[in-house]
Structure formats: structure tokens, C-alpha cells
Simulated scan of single mutants.
Amino acid sequence: MYRFLLTPRWWGINVFVLLAIPFCVFMGSWQLSRFEARVDDHRSAKELAESARTEAARPLAELLPVDKATSGRRTTATGHYGKQLLVPDRQLDGRDGYYVLTLLRTDGGKALPVVRGWLPGSADSAKAPKPPAGQVTVTGTLQASETPGDNGVSAQGGLPAGQTSAISAASLVNLVPYDLYDAWVTLDTADSGMTAVPATAAADTGLDLKAFQNLGYTGEWFVFAGFVVFMWFRLLRREVEFARDAELGILPEEPGESEGPGESEGPGESEEPGAGSTDRHDRVQEDASTPVR
């Protein structure tokens, strides 16, 4: 009954199934591990943010370069404020506004972007408070450079002079005449007249759309594995039923096989026109020539 499994066709089907199922399970498990890793990162980021509020600020040099472990840590830096820029289209507590970003020229020779606060409304340099003069020491939360188009950061160009859409060394390098740190700081306490900007979690450490995409892909791969198993059993059952019918002599009929000779034809359709009348005429002549006794 199952000898058909040894045919070349079924060898190919079986090999495909034996390779496809482990591959689907592996890919589903990998996507699930990615989702679990993002959940762990999210939990770690929350714990880091809570501990960062109470820990002492550390010098900037000790926390660079910025990564998942140092993003969100409190830091301190000393220098002189230089060029000031505005970052439009930033929301805070559901209101539209803009950041006031000032470059702090540190003693190390590089400039550190410092978000001194947030103001409501459209970006207006006349409303932005001027930075303090002289040497200052700032304390705030260290943040990684933003990526335009990611996490709500605008990627639009053509902004007026004195504005930037993203806070990153790549975006600021053509706007300021300083070497820049690949990081920025948001002050714990905003300068007068402004609202402090809360720190954000490091990239890829939250339960964002990417995390739930991983979870969705996990389900898809496991569904694919189940579909392969289902189709294999369906083909097997169909083949077994065909083999059983063949043993019983019940085979699928070809089109026209069920029609007997002349069944598809009407009465007299197989005879040539006039054939019947000719036979009757011959019988009449034969009867006429027979002598009557």
C-alpha cells in the first residue's frame, strides 16, 4: 500500500519536507529570540533610567562612545557656549514646539551639543534665551546621536538658517565650525524660561514596531512549518486512496470510456442514408422470384 513512498517523486517530496520543517522551526525560534532580546533590552533600559536619576554624574570622557550601556547616564562637562541652533517640530506633553540647542566648546577642543530646553510654538530665534557667557559646567543626561527619519526624528531638508532637523554629528558638521562629539546632552534643569527635555531610551531597546515585527515573523514561520506537514499528509492520503481504488479495480474513467458502441448516437444515425430501404427492396425481389407451390 505504501510502496509508492519509494518512487523518485515521493523521494523528492519527503526530502523537501524533511528540510523545510527544521528550517521553518529554526527561523521561527530565531525571530522569537530577537523579540525576547528586545524585551530584555527594554527592561534593562527602564532599570538604567531609574538608576540614572539618583546616581552621581560622571565626566563625559568616561561615558564615550555612547552605547546601550551609557545612553541615559548622567554626565557633566565644562566649557564655553558657542553657536546656537533651533530644532523645530518637537513635541513635549502633546504640544508642538522646538528645542534650543547650543554647542558647548569643551576644554578637549570638541563641541558638545547641549539641549538647554524646549519652547512651545514655531521655531523663533528671537524667543530663544541666549546662553550664559563665560565658562560653564553643565549636568545632564547623555544621549546617542539621532538618526533622521527614525523614532519620530524629522528628515526634512531646506530648513531656514540656524535650524537643524536632527541632533547628530552628521547633521551638524556642515552647520558649525567645530569638531563635534558623536553624542548630545539634555540638561537636568532647563535654562530660564524653558522646559527641560526628558531623556529618551537608547535605540533598539524598546518595545517598538520592530519588536512586534519579530513576534509576527515568529508566528509566520511556525505556520509555514505546520502548513508543510498538513500538505504532506494530504498528499499521502490522496495517494493511499488512489492505490486502494486501483487494488479494487476502481479507476478513474477517461472521458468517453463509459459510452458503449453506438450509445452516443441516435436511432439509425450509424446507418447511411437509404441503407435500410435498399435491404428491404432486395428482400422483396427475392420473395417474388420464389415459385409458389
Results as ranks from 00 to 15, higher is better:
P8W: 12
W11Q: 15
I13D: 01
N14Y: 02
V17W: 01
L19Y: 05
L19H: 02
I21S: 11
F23V: 15
M27D: 01
E36V: 02
D40G: 11
L48V: 04
A56Y: 02
A61E: 15
P65F: 09
V66R: 03
V66E: 05
T78W: 03
H80F: 11
Y81C: 03
R90S: 03
R90I: 04
G94W: 07
D96S: 15
L104K: 08
P120Q: 13
S122P: 02
S125G: 05
K130A: 15
P131W: 04
P132Y: 09
Q135Y: 01
Q143H: 08
S145R: 02
P148Q: 06
N151M: 11
G152E: 06
A155E: 12
L159K: 05
G162P: 07
S168D: 06
A170T: 14
D179I: 00
Y181R: 04
A190W: 05
T195M: 09
A196Q: 10
F212Y: 15
Q213P: 01
N214W: 09
N214P: 02
T218N: 03
E220F: 14
W221E: 10
V223Y: 11
F233G: 10
R234F: 05
A243M: 10
E247I: 05
E254T: 08
G276I: 12
D279G: 13
R280Y: 07
V292H: 07
